[in-house]
Design a protein around this nucleic acid. Sequence first.
DNA 1: ATGTCTATTGCAACTAAGTTGCAAAGTGGA
DNA 2: TCCACTTTGCAACTTAGTTGCAATAGACAT
Lengths: 140, 140
Amino acid sequence: MSSNNLNVEHKLNEKSVKPTAVRNLVLKYLVERGKAFSVSDLEEAFDTIDKSTLFRTLKTFEQNDLVHTIDDGTGKLKYALCTSSCNSSTDHQHFHFTCQKCGETFCLPKTELPSIELPPNFAILESNLVLKGLCNDCNT
Amino acid sequence: MSSNNLNVEHKLNEKSVKPTAVRNLVLKYLVERGKAFSVSDLEEAFDTIDKSTLFRTLKTFEQNDLVHTIDDGTGKLKYALCTSSCNSSTDHQHFHFTCQKCGETFCLPKTELPSIELPPNFAILESNLVLKGLCNDCNT
DNA sequence: ATGTCTATTGCAACTAAGTTGCAAAGTGGA
DNA sequence: TCCACTTTGCAACTTAGTTGCAATAGACAT
Ligand SMILES: [Mn+2]
Ligand SMILES: [Mn+2]
Ligand SMILES: [Zn+2]
Ligand SMILES: [Zn+2]
């Protein structure tokens, strides 16, 4: 855990985010959890940290490419740790999967969009694809 | 407009939805508008109808395949009229486009999903694909 | 016409996610 | 130590959507 703390502080320094107490705690949680999460998840995990602080912490993380957001349609914005192949320079665009039973949300390996027939003179700038179904744990 | 009223009542009867005053008004508005809309749009258009009634009306419409919902990520659920090729029997699955400038949301012609690489033993049951960019009106 | 029954509507209060202003506390440098 | 700047907590707010309940409107029978 001490090694984890160092690891986490290093990650923050790498992205030029000042490693404060809250940020260390939150990032450590994210790394150990390894799955997408919502602010409610964090509120449960850290009942002493105010939700506004959590939102602001995650906004800072997002702006510095530590996490990306996922709108999976469940009503709560999800966040997931960015991987090395997922930073702003290489356009961290990929798709996601939400399990309709357990509610977990997963990042999927990067896939190209099919060519979609658009009305004339429409231009695509980004896309949000969320697949829904059953994850390995919940599939029968 | 009288013909529109009859038209709208006919549509409701067709789907076994009792044509009440509110339902006639709302459905007429939808048909004439011809674009996806939010409950806020309806609240503006009908300032005497309570929002709970509007939500309930749309839920009724949705359950009877008069409209389908679109989660375009703007924070307000959108609704669009179902077309003949868009009813529950033929699985009204298709994708959508949201203009980032004017905020309009459009239904796209039905397209097949590409084969997406999933983790083992995951099963896709549905999908939500929203493309974002500029519509014809807003594209330069 | 009158009463009765049921579905619809309006109203008000509520929930939940997310935001914001501001003051208190922390951090780090001169 | 003192000062400046950043982070955090708190409370109040915003907005989409929901819910319980009472009022109302039809539909239909008498
Ligand atoms: Mn992801
Ligand atoms: Mn549609
Ligand atoms: Zn699952
Ligand atoms: Zn537009």
